[in-house]
């Protein structure tokens, strides 16, 4: 992929819909399936990924000329790990309230495929500003995906939303378990594909 010609707004929405990390790129499935058991978990992990993604994308875009191509992947991992540590330590020191809720999610991020992939595919070839928008879009796209999954799974599995009782019963406990994560991802992916199909058909006709 050469230097992007897309505008910042296009890059931003690209991450949320066209190249949604979970439903279109099918990346970072482990956390998507494992953690999207509730809306809150999805939101918190999404925010954590958003910060790390934006920070790492900008860093790599800024220092890409100094990285030897043979060691780019270790450098990406190192960058992500550094940002994760920095965010983890700063949260613990300055916002202990947020750390109580988010600490466990931030530590998980180091090995996320979506971040490494975005650094390799985009930030390593583009300047800082587009990388920022791409990172922001991807982070929000991930948050959106996680929250959609969390919404379905929490509502069906526990009958609650954000921990508040909505349905009054627990219709299908199965949805809380990891296996159901795959089902949910599959279903929502199918919906995405179907919408795209219909959309393209309408486009052709007109």
């Amino acid at each position: 992929m050469p230097v992007t010609k897309k505008t910042n707004a296009q890059l931003f929405f690209n991450g949320i819909l066209n190249e949604n990390p979970i439903f279109r790129l099918a990346l970072s499935m482990c956390p998507a399936v494992g953690i999207s058991t509730s809306l809150m978990n999805g939101l918190l992990l999404g925010i954590a990924v958003l910060f790390v993604q934006v920070a790492s994308s900008c860093t790599i875009a800024a220092i890409k000329d100094y990285i030897h191509p043979r060691i780019r992947i270790p450098t990406y991992t190192l960058t992500i790990a550094t940002w994760v540590t920095v965010i983890d330590l700063s949260l613990a020191a300055f916002v202990p309230e947020a750390y109580k809720a988010m600490g466990i999610f931030v530590k998980l991020i180091v090995a996320f495929a979506i971040i490494t992939m975005r650094l390799e595919m985009f930030a390593a070839k583009n300047p800082v500003v587009p990388s920022f928008w791409d990172g922001l879009g991807m982070g929000l796209g991930f948050t959106f995906g996680m929250m959609t999954l969390g919404f379905v799974r929490e509502l069906l599995g526990a009958g609650t939303l954000f921990g508040h009782d909505v349905l009054g019963t627990r219709p299908l406990l199965f949805f809380i378990l990891p296996a159901a994560g795959f089902f949910c991802v599959g279903f929502i992916m199918a919906i995405f594909n179907y919408v795209e199909l219909v959309f393209n058909r309408i486009k052709k006709k007109s």
């Binding site: 450098t75 960058t79 020191a93």
Partner: peptide, 18 residues
Amino acid sequence: VSCLIAAFIMGAVFTVTD
């Protein structure tokens, strides 16, 4: 060099926040 830079940043943040 990249490891050293990363270690330096993490160390600095650690000292500030510890």
